[in-house]
């Protein structure tokens, strides 16, 4: 799966984030294949958000770089859409206008009527056509994040970047949104990169899960391949064979190994090719 020496769709090559006297992470290498859903799991402070921001082009690494389709990422662009943690909707615009804003950036030639129509179509995809005329203040947390997802989808990005998009939501809302994202990503073959704390979320959505050790000097300890077949249904996921092994592995990592593995890399660790873990089914 991970082909460090090949040329994946998106290739993260040796990026680092250093402050004077502090290295948050360094020598981080991984690839994302076209249509693949990759989750990054790790504790706060290991630089997850920085990695996502570097992929988005909102931040630049102290070292290394990111190559997408053979071109280095040098700044934010429409081919990479971000779903922000705090939805980041503009409160003076209605749901429809928020989506239309993104559409207008993508398609400057479109007229008002066209933008309206297309914005409503995208909102319908996330089940929000009935709330198109409401401002964010009149939407629930889950609905706001749906609009945030609709806005990201509207520009038809090559890659979706999601920074713990559901962490501020209650469990029920989170569940239905996860399913929605799973459906949308699978249907469209959407390439996606997502940061999460939520183990079940990672198992439901990801093809591969990158496990990061605690910072400082964080690194990708291993790459866990999610072998559970798609389509995955949230309600029945935990009955699928292999689910508990995956879950236990990630939990063990988060609870103990992220800490014990932190610091210096073990003998034989190649940052360009971190160990790939494929649990027996």
């Amino acid at each position: 799966m991970n082909k460090p020496y090949g040329s994946p769709y998106v290739s993260v090559e040796g990026i680092a984030r250093r402050f004077p006297g502090l290295t948050v992470f360094s020598d981080v290498w991984f690839g994302i294949e076209r249509g693949e859903f990759v989750c990054l799991v790790g504790h706060s402070g290991c630089g997850k958000t920085t990695i996502l921001n570097i992929l988005a082009g909102l931040d630049s690494p102290s070292d290394g770089g990111v190559v997408m389709e053979g071109r280095e990422i040098s700044g934010p662009a429409l081919d990479r859409a971000v779903v922000f943690q705090g939805h980041a909707l503009m409160p003076w615009l209605t749901a429809e206008q928020n989506v239309a804003f993104a559409l207008a950036c993508r398609n400057p030639a479109w007229g008002k009527a066209r933008l309206r129509e297309e914005a409503r179509a995208v909102l319908a995809k996330v089940g929000l056509e009935h709330a198109a005329d409401r401002k964010p203040a009149m939407l629930s947390g889950g609905m706001k994040q749906r609009v945030g997802i609709a806005r990201a989808l509207a520009v038809q990005p090559k890659m979706m970047l999601m920074d713990e998009p559901f962490s501020a939501l209650d469990a029920l809302t989170r569940g239905s949104l996860q399913e929605e994202v799973s459906r949308l990503a699978t249907e469209a073959g959407q390439t996606a990169f997502m940061i999460t704390h939520d183990v079940d979320e990672a198992i439901l959505l990801a093809d591969r899960i990158l496990l990061m050790t605690n910072g400082p000097n964080a690194r990708i300890a291993e790459v866990l391949v999610n072998t559970l077949p798609r389509p995955r249904i949230r309600a029945t996921l935990h009955h699928q064979p292999g689910y508990h092994a995956l879950r236990d592995h990630i939990m063990d990592f988060l609870v103990t190994r992220s800490r014990t593995l932190a610091g210096a890399a073990p003998e034989g660790y190649d940052p360009r090719d971190p160990p790939i873990v494929r649990l027996a089914e």
Partner: peptide
């Protein structure tokens, strides 16, 4: 103006004028 709105504009390649009049001014 909230950083995240500016980041939204940047990721959407909104351009200086659109960002000034559609994001910063209303904010």
């Amino acid at each position: 103006v909230r950083r995240e709105w500016l980041n939204v504009a940047r990721t959407l390649e909104a351009g200086t004028w659109r960002t000034a009049f559609r994001v910063i001014l209303p904010a």
